[in-house]
Design a protein around this nucleic acid. Sequence first.
DNA 1: TGGCGACTTGCCCTTGACGTCAACGTGAGG
DNA 2: CCTCACGTTGACGTCAAGGGCAAGTCGCCA
Lengths: 139, 139
Amino acid sequence: MQDMRIGELAARAHVSTRALRYYEEQGILHSERTPSGQRVYGEAAVERVRLIQHLFSAGLASRTIALILPCVDTGHAPPEMLSSLHTERDRITSVIADLEQARQRLDQVIELTEHPDPEHCAIVRDAAGRTTAIAGAAA
Amino acid sequence: MQDMRIGELAARAHVSTRALRYYEEQGILHSERTPSGQRVYGEAAVERVRLIQHLFSAGLASRTIALILPCVDTGHAPPEMLSSLHTERDRITSVIADLEQARQRLDQVIELTEHPDPEHCAIVRDAAGRTTAIAGAAA
DNA sequence: TGGCGACTTGCCCTTGACGTCAACGTGAGG
DNA sequence: CCTCACGTTGACGTCAAGGGCAAGTCGCCA
């Protein structure tokens, strides 16, 4: 397992070096150091950074990530952390529900626009003027 | 349909009045005004604000929301907006996938901590090993 | 009419996740 | 030895999503 320094990791995980230092600052990414202080990472760090990115993009805060990552690593949690884990799990579940609802609405719009149902043509055409008016005003 | 002012809407939708004014500023929530300038909302605004909140909590930016809300309202989109809608939809889909993966990891941890059954332990351990290998096996 | 709470706009403050710039150390090649 | 890309920490900038305060206005009730 050949090690890499921060620049290579950043390139391979498609994040900035700044982000990597920030993750370390937040305690969610660890590094070895050369005697001179340069950060050194193993292969595994690439996937780890991607995981971190996914969690961020899913709306989790760095503190939350810092909380759950060690548990995911070890595969278990100290019992006193269970309630936080349940809370986080429930939050994730409700966010998923929100997202699915939002996606469903989007799908409806897309479907109707791509395959305008003849029955609703009149309605759609009527609404078209208003929408572009709104879109134009908003833009 | 009796109307309400900003304070009541805020209370009923469980957001701050500041947030409501911010939504209006961002063009994602509209209001009528009294001759003196006070904001007036109809019943429907309550559900609209909740929808907005859901979209926010799902990680969508106000600009994105401003983009898709009119389409959701009218049930269709101007064709030139279709690609943006597809992009947003795909983003949402991948975020959902990330979240489900994260939740699954959490579930493993919770399960293992709540029921440290030796037999399951091995199985879950193995599964956890593989997933964290994907994520980057620490240690 | 006076009072009082809810409302208005305007402005700066805060937090999180970085970007960016400064000033300096590191290390492999010519 | 010099260079030059890459690394380091520290400090400040930015952008979104509001929070909070100020100073003035509205509307309703005694």
